Computed example of a mutant assay.
Amino acid sequence: MAQKVLVLNQDYSALTICSMPKAFLLVYLNKAELVAESTTAKLHSVSKTFPYPSVIRLQRYVYFPFKGVMLNRQNILKRDNHTCQYCGSKDFLTMDHVLPKSRQGRTSWDNLVTACKYCNSKKGYMTPEEAGMVLARQPFRPSFVMFLRNFSGILDQQWAPFVGAKLETTT
């Protein structure tokens, strides 16, 4: 039951990802409807068989005034594919401010990248240009749907119409 389920708002916009037991409970209590079910599994009780949810839609619209991705270490690592943005290493990763804090660099999506300890100390208080280092890609703020689609680590083909992409693998 480790499979995750995409939760849609009443208007079919992607809202969040939840666990399969929570999704089943929402459907069972008529708080959500089943939009897509898993083709690989079914839920069994003593006397009934239920579809295994893959995508559900809430019966009532849930208003979220701010739908953004939280800035934290785990999300920066996901965005940067757990790779040093200077040398490509996947070992001893830290967070690096592109414009150092000592030069009024902010702690923001646009100024933080993943860096290995070696590259982070080599860069020190300098900018990448001053240190003669090149970023693999410029830091950016991912949108909520982009984060669900690209960085959540869950790839289910049935989510594609709702998150706006063709996903490569089905789990």
Rank of each mutant, 00 (worst) to 15 (best):
Q3L: 09
K4C: 07
V5P: 02
V5L: 03
L8V: 03
L8P: 06
L8G: 04
N9I: 01
Y12Q: 14
S13W: 04
S13Y: 11
T16R: 06
T16C: 07
I17C: 07
I17P: 08
C18L: 14
C18N: 04
M20H: 10
P21K: 13
P21M: 10
K22H: 12
L25C: 12
L26D: 03
L26G: 00
Y28L: 07
N30Y: 02
N30C: 13
K31D: 10
K31H: 03
E33P: 09
E33L: 01
L34T: 02
V35M: 09
V35Y: 04
V35R: 03
A36I: 03
A36M: 06
S38C: 15
T39F: 10
A41T: 05
K42D: 03
L43E: 05
S47N: 15
K48Q: 03
K48I: 01
K48T: 00
T49I: 14
T49P: 06
F50P: 04
R57K: 02
Q59M: 09
R60I: 05
R60Q: 08
V62R: 10
V62I: 13
F64G: 04
P65G: 08
P65N: 07
F66M: 12
G68P: 12
G68C: 01
V69S: 11
V69Q: 09
L71I: 08
N72K: 08
N72R: 07
R73S: 05
I76P: 08
I76S: 02
I76Q: 05
L77H: 11
L77W: 11
K78I: 14
K78S: 11
R79L: 14
R79P: 05
H82Y: 15
C84Q: 00
Q85D: 03
C87I: 00
G88L: 07
K90H: 15
K90G: 12
D91Q: 13
F92A: 13
L93H: 04
M95V: 02
M95G: 00
D96A: 13
V98W: 13
L99S: 14
K101T: 14
K101W: 14
Q104W: 05
Q104S: 09
R106Y: 03
R106I: 00
S108Q: 08
S108N: 11
T114S: 15
A115F: 08
C116E: 10
C116H: 13
Y118N: 12
Y118M: 00
N120V: 04
K123A: 08
Y125E: 15
M126G: 07
M126T: 12
T127G: 09
P128E: 08
P128Y: 07
E130R: 14
G132Y: 11
G132F: 02
V134I: 13
L135D: 10
A136T: 01
R141I: 03
R141G: 03
P142I: 09
S143M: 13
F144K: 06
F144C: 09
V145D: 09
M146I: 13
F147W: 05
F147A: 07
L148C: 01
R149C: 06
S152H: 10
G153E: 12
I154D: 11
D156P: 06
W159I: 06
A160Q: 01
A160I: 02
P161F: 13
V163L: 04
A165L: 12
L167V: 02
L167Q: 14
E168Y: 10
T169E: 15
T170P: 01
T170H: 15
